[in-house]
Amino acid sequence: MKKIAHLGYLLSVLVLAGCAHPITITPNLSTIDRKDVTPIEKNAGYFISQSDREKKVVTPGGGGDKVEYMPYRDIEAALQKVLSNLFVRVYKVPSPGDTKFIADNDISFIFVPKVETRSSSTGVMTWMATDFTLVLDCKAIDRNGAVVWEQSITGNGHAEFNEMMETGDYQLSSRRASEAVFL
């Protein structure tokens, strides 16, 4: 009887502790299109530090579980695509202080993103996040390091459990949030 009680206690601890399920927050890149944008006749760059690129974030999912993702790595392709829609050429800049790289590639602006995320779920029995928020604070600096532009954009994404199950896209809310930011 004691063994059954211990097993029940262990099982309840494991259930309550939850776990982190890996997802991506990358938007559907095919929706981020140039359309009617006339590119600015300048080259641009973007900078994401290696530590940000490797940063893992864990936020709440449903049922006591969590979701984990790498926000900077996941949004990099979308950032690059948006900038490519706006500028003639776009470069991944090794450092905003790398004046030789910036001069050699005639880069006029360097975009530096800062990402914050939140997630939650209305589901009690499932791990997926039904609601996701992505906040992108981005600034552009010129060749001298002076801030010439700043913008904060918030994207919210929601997906019902049934919708995620039907599509098989368990990160649908996060994709919608990031797509809202980059559109």
Rank of each mutant, 00 (worst) to 15 (best):
K3R: 14
I4E: 07
I4L: 10
A5C: 07
H6N: 03
L7Q: 09
G8K: 12
G8A: 13
Y9Q: 11
S12M: 11
G18T: 05
P22W: 07
I23H: 12
P27M: 01
I32T: 02
I32W: 02
I32P: 01
I32N: 01
D33M: 06
D36A: 11
V37W: 00
V37Q: 12
T38N: 05
T38P: 01
Y46G: 11
Y46Q: 13
S49F: 05
V58E: 12
T59N: 08
G62F: 03
G63D: 04
K66E: 09
M70R: 12
P71W: 13
Y72L: 03
I75Q: 11
E76S: 08
A77D: 14
A78L: 14
K81F: 02
S84Y: 00
F87W: 03
F87C: 05
R89D: 03
R89H: 10
K92F: 05
V93C: 06
P96V: 03
T99N: 02
A103Y: 15
A103I: 08
D104C: 07
N105I: 14
N105P: 01
I107Q: 01
V112I: 09
V112Q: 07
P113R: 05
R118H: 02
S120Y: 04
V124C: 04
F132V: 10
L134I: 12
L134G: 03
V135S: 02
V135R: 14
L136Q: 15
L136R: 15
C138D: 07
K139G: 11
R143M: 05
G145E: 14
A146C: 02
W149F: 13
W149P: 15
Q151A: 14
Q151L: 11
G157Q: 12
G157Y: 01
M164F: 09
D169M: 09
D169P: 04
Y170C: 14
L172R: 13
R176Y: 07
A177F: 01
S178H: 01
E179K: 04
F182Y: 03
